[in-house]
Simulated assay, not measured.
Amino acid sequence: MNYIEFDSYVRKWIFTHASMPVSEADLVQIKPFTQARSAQLWCEHVSNQSSDADHFEKGDWAFDKKIWSDSIDWQKAWDSDEPELPAELLADVKWEDNTTIFFCYEKYNIIETKWGVFKRNWKNFLFFDDGPLLLGRKQKQTIWFQSNGTFQVATRP
């Protein structure tokens, strides 16, 4: 079994909170992985050494500061009443809405969904902004959301 039941997901409330409701159609497409599957994906795509983005080490592809774009603000868009992702992010990442993505809070907490679902509900996902990474399946681009309200984009090896 790769997924846990959504109702059992520890952070379920960020998607069901009355102030930022997610549609039923989107909720069924938000699939938290088990800790074991999360760890496997993290090791395959992010790091064998570090358990979260704040602790990348030499040898982790993401450790190389030169591969990351300049920091771009996402906090202003998150704080606004407008639902759209920052235009700069949409300009950098041109994935199809049906692209499978992995939203990685840390090694043991990864959610699978679609890019279109993320775009519609990105404020929910970023309620916890402690350095999550967003990876697209079969995509090399990675987005790193920093807790200081900025994001950076890189191309994974």
Rank of each mutant, 00 (worst) to 15 (best):
P21Y: 04
K94D: 11
T34S: 15
A91P: 03
L134Y: 06
I101M: 09
W95M: 07
T142M: 15
R156T: 09
S38R: 02
E106R: 08
W122S: 06
N121V: 12
Q35D: 11
F63I: 05
N124G: 02
F102H: 10
E96N: 11
F127Q: 12
A36L: 12
S69F: 02
W61P: 00
V22F: 07
C104W: 03
E96I: 02
Q152A: 13
T113P: 09
W78R: 14
P83I: 09
K58V: 12
I143G: 04
K66V: 06
Y105F: 12
L85I: 06
D130L: 09
T16N: 04
L135T: 07
D60G: 09
V153H: 01
E24P: 02
R11E: 06
W42Q: 01
W115F: 15
W115A: 11
C43Q: 14
S19A: 15
F103A: 04
R11I: 00
T16M: 02
D60C: 08
I30Y: 08
L90W: 01
A25T: 12
I110K: 00
K66C: 02
W61K: 02
S47W: 01
F102E: 02
E112C: 14
G116A: 14
F127G: 06
E24I: 07
F56K: 01
Q152F: 03
C43R: 14
E106C: 05
L126F: 06
Q29R: 15
F127D: 09
L89N: 01
F63H: 15
F103C: 06
Q29T: 08
F125D: 05
Q139E: 15
I72G: 00
K58Q: 14
F128K: 07
F33T: 02
L27G: 01
A87F: 07
K140C: 05
D97K: 11
Y108N: 12
G131C: 10
Y9N: 04
D54H: 14
G136D: 11
P86T: 04
A77D: 12
V153K: 01
W95F: 07
P32S: 08
S147G: 15
N2A: 14
F63S: 04
